[in-house]
């Protein structure tokens, strides 16, 4: 190693915050929230403190998969403007440490969930991390434009894990929550990919707009928006949600379909509608789950 190379490394300057960034705190917060709704909606009498520890274990598991994703995708992150400032491309944290942290936290979170809740929940958490890291990051992400469609299963599982932690079961109701996030994922990421198309093309990621073009992607986004609205009716249809929820879902769904329509009909070069849909999609998912949670906590239904 030459003295110049030694001088240029900044690894010794890494602080705790750099390692927390590896856990993708923003993704973590959505996982915590959806898992919490799964817990609140499930029948069962898990001690509140054990439920809180279970939720923490699910959050740490999500963080572990984030670290493993940053380990595996460091080459992609370095060339994409959106991710170039992550700790590995910035040479704050060595790749191997992200792998070690992710692997270690995977074992810790799954074991903690097994102790605090049950083996079904722990098994589902382990499967979620495996699916996100191996099936999505390692296999599908660089292979097919359906990458985020199938990979979305990992992001959709947290409410099922939460449900299983409290009740020890994973019935249809839990999978209805899964379905909403699963169908929400493609229009959410494709809206992002529509206005970050150059980034993905440069990194060689076969996102839908890169492979099939913007027009085909816009059509798909609109179709998924319609299916999403249909899926959002399911909790009401099977009796797990009431009038408050369906009213909120109708308003949010109308907004989603309207913005997806704007994406579909926008001028070829206009990126504004896709950006707006992307931002609203996060409000949408938060709103749907918040409505379920509020209805449950306020005792408006069931």
């Amino acid at each position: 190693m030459t003295p110049v190379a030694i001088k240029s490394d900044t690894y010794a300057l890494a602080g705790p915050r750099d390692y927390i960034v590896l856990l993708k705190p923003r993704v973590m917060s959505l996982v915590i929230f959806t898992a919490l709704v799964g817990m609140a909606a499930a029948p069962g009498g898990l001690h509140p403190a054990l439920a809180a520890i279970s939720l923490l274990a699910i959050a740490v598991g999500a963080g572990a998969s984030g670290a493993l994703n940053m380990w595996w995708d460091a080459d992609i992150d370095a060339v994409m403007a959106r991710t170039a400032s992550r700790p590995i491309p910035m040479r704050r944290v060595p790749r191997a440490e992200a792998a070690a942290l992710g692997g270690f936290l995977t074992a810790l979170s799954v074991a903690l969930l097994a102790l605090a809740a049950n083996y079904l929940a722990a098994g589902l958490l382990a499967f979620t991390i495996f699916f996100y890291v191996v099936i999505y990051s390692m296999w599908l992400k660089r292979l097919t434009p359906q990458n985020i469609v199938i990979g979305g299963a990992a992001g959709a599982l947290p409410p099922v894990i939460g449900w299983a932690a409290v009740s020890g079961t994973a019935p249809l109701e839990a999978w209805v929550l899964f379905a909403i996030i699963f169908i929400w994922t493609p229009p959410h990421f494709w809206a992002l990919a529509l206005f970050k198309k150059g980034d993905y093309a440069r990194a060689g990621i076969p996102m839908m707009p890169v492979v099939k073009g913007a027009r085909a992607t816009r059509r798909q986004v609109f179709i998924y928006a319609l299916v999403l609205v249909a899926a959002s009716v399911a909790p009401f249809a099977i009796g797990m949600a009431g009038a408050f929820y369906i009213a909120a879902a109708a308003v949010l769904g109308a907004g989603f379909v309207w913005l997806a329509w704007r994406v579909l009909t926008a001028a070829e070069t206009d990126r504004q509608p896709a950006m707006r849909l992307f931002r609203f999609s996060m409000i949408y998912l938060f709103g749907i789950f918040a409505a379920l949670l509020f209805e449950r906590l306020a005792g408006l239904h069931g």
């Binding site: 190693m1 030694i6 490394d9 690894y11 010794a12 300057l13 890494a14 060595p94 440490e97």
Partner: peptide, 17 residues
């Protein structure tokens, strides 16, 4: 964290410490 000091014997700067 593989500290540079481990490889080169060079002392860490106050900020690195």
């Amino acid at each position: 964290m593989a500290d540079r000091a481990d490889m080169t014997g060079e002392a860490l700067s106050p900020e690195e410490k």
